[in-house]
Design a protein around this nucleic acid. Structure first.
Lengths: 129, 129
DNA sequence: AGTCGTCTACGAAGACTTTCGTAGATTGAG
DNA sequence: CTCAATCTACGAAAGTCTTCGTAGACGACT
């Protein structure tokens, strides 16, 4: 099945992963520019972080070009699930409904979104015995 | 309304807050003993953390007894909401339904729980226009 | 008074995270 | 070839978080 058990990304690492998920494989420069707005990350800072992430196995890089191209190893979904699972234990004592409760409270959720979430749950109900 | 805007608790701080929420106001010794199992936190470590948390305003303490009694300033609900709101932005780009999706995937959720969550959503639907 | 156990206070070590300066390699233009 | 721009690599500073050792205060008990 291959679940190499990657470490939980730090905050800055996560910001980089988000860019890679959105853009697909990218160079340091491309990532830096995308991060500029929300973080003001400098070029060498991003480079260093991405080098560290390579060591940790969070990203892999293609060195065939002069500007190395980095790519996220884990999908957004898998990483998000890992992070939420961790949160569930650490903050909510494993209660998914409490988490959902606070998620809906934290952000005013539109009727459309609520309906979509309901559909989601209906699907899970089919699967659950 | 008084929303003093407390800092986000760190991991170790959160573990302490969880004990305070569960037990109510407690001494350092009591907290340490509760934390012993899951964290192996030493007495002076807990003490130091709780002193720092006092400075940050996360807890307040009653010094009228020789053993100071600490109490969480923010409720579990408020703190959880803050943390989830932060996560929503940082990890899910603000999409509550993606968060719910991963929460339900991360933990096998029972039919009973799913039903409860559905009720929750029904209530939110009433409030939302 | 002297001793023991428990308490607070404090400082500092150690680990981890993030940032950046600098050096050296490579490429393209003049 | 030389220069400027751009890249990687690396080390180290600065900040934060967590841990713990040690010191001094306090109270109870003999």
């Amino acid at each position: 099945m291959a679940k190499p058990d990657l470490p939980k990304p730090t905050e800055a690492e996560l910001a980089i992963l988000r860019v890679l998920w959105e853009r697909g494989p990218s160079t340091v420069r491309e990532v830096t520019e995308h991060l500029q707005d929300e973080r003001g990350t400098g070029y060498t800072t991003a480079l260093k972080l991405m080098q560290i992430m390579t060591e940790k196995g969070l990203v892999k890089r293609d060195e065939s070009e002069r500007s190395h191209v980095y790519e996220a190893v884990a999908s957004a979904e898998n990483t998000q699930r890992q992070i939420v699972g961790d949160l569930l234990d650490r903050v909510f004592g494993g209660s998914a409904q409490q988490l959902v409760m606070q998620a809906l409270s934290a952000k005013r959720t539109s009727k459309v979104e609520l309906a979509e979430i309901k559909e989601l749950i209906a699907e899970f109900e089919k699967k659950a015995k």
